[in-house]
Design a binder for these strands. Structure first.
Length: 505
RNA sequence: GGCGCUAUCGUCUAGGGGUUAGGACGUGAGAUUCUCAAUCUUAAAACCCGGGUUCAAUUCCCGGUAGCGCUACCA
């Protein structure tokens, strides 16, 4: 029987590490969800880490909006960190790497190399002269206060091949000679107040350094992130080695792209890339999560509609696809039709008592203030008729409007009928309803009997009443609707309808 | 330009050396309850191209093409 390590030691630790430079992007949300599912499926730990090493671009507003988005998703995390509070660790690690001779100072002014990318000469690998600078000269220039960036010295010229196995993309390899000397510390920083082996300044760590130093320090076991980092992984492999730790496992996720194939971006595609747009339109978080999971992952059976528990149970990295997935929105429809369909399905799956309070804010926003009790009574009538929560307002406003907005009186006239017929129907309904109790069965009985007395089919007879009571042709089932509206309001609206018919002559 | 990754209906995907290439959304047609919605039935719709391996390739291999990513002192 093979000996296995204690399971506690194998409990995965994953992290979601957004950089707070904007709102929570749908692609980031999916990365978070996949990490979360992996953690929960394997009874591991979910770490949230704000990768805020770029002081120029980070904003507090962005931090707030990311938290807002994550909170809405309703998926919790177990530990929380901020890279900006861990600068000491990053600098210590940078010094250690420098001390091992695995990095060098680069005194090239920032942005000096910006225009030399490509060219016919080949890839850019390092700034001329800096990699070979003698330690003496390097120390002297640093001591004199000259700013520098610290760069990792990629072991080139040895024909070395770097390898790792990605849980999604399989075996990956790249020649070390193709990897450029990436920066570990920026030349901008703060004067240091301790003895630093690097010089008079503490440079700010770059993403690569901070990310790897933290992943190592936090003992992250699996890095699950966007495929845009697939090639960066070789740099990270080098860094983990320089840090003297075993690299974690890697799993890269296919990217979410727009219908034009481009990576989703706020500039090009507008607010559809923000999680809050979905929330504000009335997506249920569980539906949104369900939708995102189906982009680049499949449970391998024919299920599409899955709740959180089912997703958690079914989620494996083996089920992750390798090709980018299109979020199929358009100018006419900002949301992928499948997301909308899934939302409708999740709405129907939700008990009325849970759905009703979720709909409430959308009425408030529309200036309507239904009582929770009445909204609870209305909810089952519209639950099958809305795809987004915000649709509830247009589907059910007439329940809460004291006065029906004006409608075309011609709508009162049923198929194969005329104004006189409509008038007769309404008149008769008025008489009948005066003595009918307003529950479903009584209304059903009374109105069907009334229809046959008038020699009309049910559909024909009900249209004038429906329009009179709801103010439009398409509405929830008539009897339930009238029962909720109540005796008084229904009769008043039917009388108003009669008056409107008069205007038709 | 260099390097890397990817390629099944419009979209999300399943599948895999021999299949009527499956499902879902969306779309068209029909059925159905008082309208709408829902539901049901049904139709149209895909293996990027070229070579190789093989009795057989959409599936494996190579090349091409296309798309995407990285090539920042962004992440």
């Amino acid at each position: 029987m093979p000996d296995s390590a204690p399971s506690a030691a194998r409990t995965p630790r994953v992290r979601f590490a957004p950089s707070p430079t904007g709102f929570l992007h749908v692609g980031s949300a999916r990365t978070f969800i996949f990490n979360w599912l992996y953690a929960r499926h394997n009874h591991g730990t979910m770490v949230l880490r704000l990768d805020d090493t770029d002081v120029e671009r980070n904003t507090e507003a962005s931090v707030q909006s990311i938290f807002e988005g994550l909170r809405w998703l309703g998926l919790s995390w177990d530990e929380e960190y901020k890279q900006s509070e861990r600068l000491a660790l990053h600098r210590r690690q940078a010094e250690a790497i420098f001390a091992k001779g695995l990095a060098y100072r680069d005194f090239t002014p920032a942005h000096a190399g910006d225009d030399n990318q490509s060219g016919a000469q080949g890839a850019w690998l390092c700034n001329p002269g800096m990699r070979e600078l003698s330690r003496e000269e390097s120390d002297r220039r640093a001591a004199s206060g000259e700013p520098f960036a610290l760069r990792y010295r990629v072991p080139r010229g040895q024909g070395r091949t770097m390898r790792f196995v990605d849980s999604v993309y399989g075996e990956q390899s790249k020649l070390a000679d193709e990897v450029e000397d990436f920066a570990l510390l920026r030349s901008v920083g703060v004067p240091n107040d301790r003895s630093s082996s690097l010089g008079l300044w503490d440079g700010n760590p770059t993403y690569h350094l901070a990310s790897c130093a933290d992943d190592a320090d936090l003992r992250i076991s699996h890095i699950i992130r966007g495929q845009d980092h697939l090639t960066n992984t070789f740099k990270h492999l080098a860094l983990f080695e320089a840090l003297g730790v075993q690299p974690p496992h890697f799993a890269h996720l296919p990217l979410l792209v727009a219908p034009d194939g481009a990576k989703l971006s706020k500039r090009r595609h507008g607010p559809v890339v923000s999680v809050t747009t979905y929330r504000d339109a009335g997506f249920l978080p569980q539906a949104f999560v369900n939708f995102l999971c189906l982009l680049g992952w499949s449970p391998k059976d024919d299920r599409e509609l899955l709740n959180l528990a089912e997703l958690t149970q079914a989620f494996t990295l083996e089920g992750v696809n390798r090709a980018n997935a299109v979020v199929n929105f358009s100018d006419s429809d900002p949301f992928d039709p499948k997301a909308v369909w899934l939302n409708a399905e999740h709405i129907r799956a939700l008990p009325v008592a849970e759905l009703s309070p979720q709909i409430q804010p959308f009425f408030e926003q529309a200036g309507l203030h239904p009582s929770p009790e009445k909204l609870l009574a209305v909810t089952p009538l519209i639950r099958e008729r809305i795809k987004l929560l915000r649709d509830a307002v247009s589907a059910a406003d007439f329940f809460f409007l004291p006065q029906l907005p004006p409608y075309d009186p011609a709508e009162l006239i049923p198929q194969k009928g005329d104004a006189a017929l409509a008038r007769r129907v309404l008149q008769h309904a008025l008489e009948v309803l005066a003595t009918t109790s307003f529950d479903h069965d009584s209304l059903d009985q009374a109105l069907r009997a009334a229809a046959s007395r008038l020699g009309l089919k049910a559909g024909q007879a009900f249209q004038p009443i429906r329009v009179a009571v709801c103010g439009r042709k398409n509405a929830p089932p008539l009897f339930e609707t009238m029962a909720v509206l109540g005796h008084e309001l229904c009769l008043a609206r039917i009388r108003q309808a009669e008056a409107r018919l008069e205007s038709l002559g």
